[in-house]
């Protein structure tokens, strides 16, 4: 005898019912939590940006951000200006740091569209920080970074993070031993041409004393993530070069 649950009509009804239940459940959850999630993401971005500027509570070899309660205040205290650069046009926008870089990437595939670049300007103890949020691809998924530079494009601080790099290998790009290596690295070569920073395995300078070699030491076993970091720095920060050139003139 055929079971009731084997009938086609039942199957279809069940499928429709399931889609409705699951769909509404998910939509409800997604909509209900959206504000809180967005808020969490915003706070995270502010924390990361401040971290790149050196506004953090690092002690010894530990790594920690400023506390979450203070982040809003600190952010408005240290970040003095937020810009969106589009070609030669520079506009101020107080939410420039929230610009969706993935979307900008996609829009820029259309040659008629000029990429919009966010740039944050901060000041701490008399030093001016230019912070660029950038995004690229690692081994598995997206990687991103906030790179704080001075006006000569020397890195003053960097924060890297990733969506899903291999735990213990590529995932370590958000650890201090990797990020701290970038501090002081020059993005330009001695002739003033943009070189980026290579993440190199055959590095003659593993303790990273030479800051003008455009190289930092790679993480063993994380070649592709490292290459992703280097490629991201090279292709994304290059877009800012003309801004920094204009700054000097």
């Amino acid at each position: 005898m055929e079971k009731r649950t084997d009938k086609n009509s039942y199957t279809i009804l069940f499928a429709i019912g399931m889609v409705i239940v699951v769909g509404s459940l998910l939509a409800f959850a997604a909509a209900g939590f959206k504000d809180r999630i967005d808020e969490n993401k915003r706070i995270e971005k502010q924390l990361n940006i401040l971290y790149a500027m050196g506004v953090n509570e690092n002690e010894g070899n530990d790594m920690s951000f400023v506390s979450k309660d203070k982040v809003g205040g600190e952010f408005s205290k240290y970040i003095t200006k937020q810009l969106i650069i589009q070609g030669d046009e520079i506009t101020e926008d107080e939410n420039a740091y929230l610009l969706d870089l993935k979307k900008e990437h996609n829009l820029a595939k259309d040659p008629k569209h000029e990429r919009r670049l966010p740039l944050l300007i901060g000041e701490k103890e008399g030093v001016i920080y230019y912070i660029a949020p950038i995004r690229g691809k690692g081994l598995w998924d997206a990687i991103w970074a906030y790179v704080a530079m001075d006006k000569d494009m020397v890195i003053l601080g960097a924060f890297f993070d990733h969506k899903g790099e291999t735990a213990g290998l590529g995932a370590n790009i958000n650890q201090r031993f990797f990020m701290d290596d970038f501090i002081g690295e020059h993005l330009m070569d001695s002739n003033g041409a943009f070189k980026g920073v290579n993440v190199s395995k055959s590095n003659a300078d593993p303790k990273n004393i030479d800051k003008t070699d455009n190289e930092v030491d790679a993480i063993a076993g994380a070649t592709i993530t490292g290459n992703g970091v280097a490629a991201m720095i090279k292709s994304e920060l290059k877009l800012y070069v003309s801004y920094f050139k204009n700054l000097k003139n």
């Binding site: 998910l26 959850a29 939590f33 809180r36 999630i37 969490n40 995270e44």
Partner: peptide, 19 residues
């Protein structure tokens, strides 16, 4: 669908309350 829904909801709740 049952696994995926379960995991996604847990993920959303965590994102909202334990980021």
């Amino acid at each position: 669908v049952v696994v995926a829904t379960l995991v996604i909801i847990v993920d959303l709740v965590l994102k909202a309350y334990a980021y």
